[in-house]
Simulated assay, not measured.
Amino acid sequence: MTETIRLSADDIRRLRNLAEQIARTETVAARYTIEIAERFHLTTGRTALNVLAISDDPDWEDTDLNTTHPWLRIRERHALANGRALFDLYIYERPAFGETGDLICCVQAELDARGLAAVHAENARDIWRRPDSPAELPADPPQ
């Protein structure tokens, strides 16, 4: 059976607030649009919202952006890979309702079986980390 996670309303609110806070360090906008990246593996062609489901590379350089999906998909139940998930979030300015402006930055959300574990900016790890979450994720068990 595949282990799954559905983020709590508190985790979703925290993630959105942190993503917008990170975006504000780049530009001040009245509104932001957050989209979840679906990435594809460059060799296998497999796609996933959870980067860890398709890549063992710690920098996921073996993947690229396939498309993005609306923020509402964060409320879905997501499959974990070895007990973890990593989402790549794209934050855009939203100049008017229904419009997507320029890309401001990307934020990564790290999840585990208990929910949101950490949030990272493009060039900074651990912008936020759940107090009981380990600083470094354990290596995947040998196959």
Rank of each mutant, 00 (worst) to 15 (best):
T2H: 02
T2W: 06
T2Q: 13
E3G: 14
E3K: 04
T4S: 02
T4P: 00
I5T: 10
L7E: 06
L7N: 05
L7G: 05
L7A: 10
A9L: 07
D10L: 15
D11T: 15
I12T: 13
I12Y: 14
R13T: 12
L15I: 09
R16G: 15
N17E: 03
N17G: 15
L18N: 03
A19E: 05
A19D: 14
A19M: 04
E20S: 09
I22L: 00
A23G: 00
R24V: 03
T25S: 05
E26F: 10
V28M: 00
T33Q: 02
T33D: 01
I34N: 00
I34K: 00
E35S: 07
I36F: 03
I36W: 02
I36H: 00
A37D: 15
E38Q: 06
E38V: 08
E38N: 05
E38M: 08
E38T: 04
F40K: 07
L42Q: 14
T43R: 05
G45P: 11
G45M: 15
R46C: 06
T47C: 02
T47I: 13
A48R: 03
L49E: 15
L49M: 08
N50S: 12
V51I: 15
L52G: 15
L52H: 09
A53K: 13
A53H: 06
I54A: 10
S55E: 11
D56K: 04
P58H: 06
D59H: 11
D59L: 07
W60K: 04
E61W: 05
D62Y: 13
D62P: 10
D62H: 13
D62S: 04
D64I: 15
L65S: 11
H69Y: 09
H69G: 06
H69M: 13
H69R: 07
H69A: 10
L72F: 05
L72P: 02
R73N: 12
R75T: 07
E76M: 10
R77D: 03
A79K: 02
A79Y: 01
L80K: 04
N82S: 13
G83F: 09
G83W: 12
R84M: 08
R84A: 14
A85L: 12
A85S: 11
L89P: 03
Y90S: 14
Y90F: 14
I91F: 02
I91L: 07
I91Y: 02
I91W: 02
Y92F: 01
E93Y: 02
E93Q: 12
E93W: 06
R94G: 14
F97P: 04
T100D: 14
G101F: 00
G101I: 10
D102S: 15
L103G: 07
I104G: 03
I104C: 06
I104A: 15
V107D: 05
V107S: 00
A109T: 14
A109V: 08
L111I: 03
D112C: 08
A117P: 01
A118K: 00
V119I: 08
V119S: 01
H120L: 14
A121W: 06
A124D: 08
A124C: 03
R125W: 01
R125H: 00
I127H: 03
W128P: 01
R129S: 11
R129I: 07
R129D: 08
P131M: 07
S133C: 03
P134L: 11
A135I: 07
E136R: 08
L137F: 05
L137E: 13
P138K: 15
P138W: 11
P141K: 09
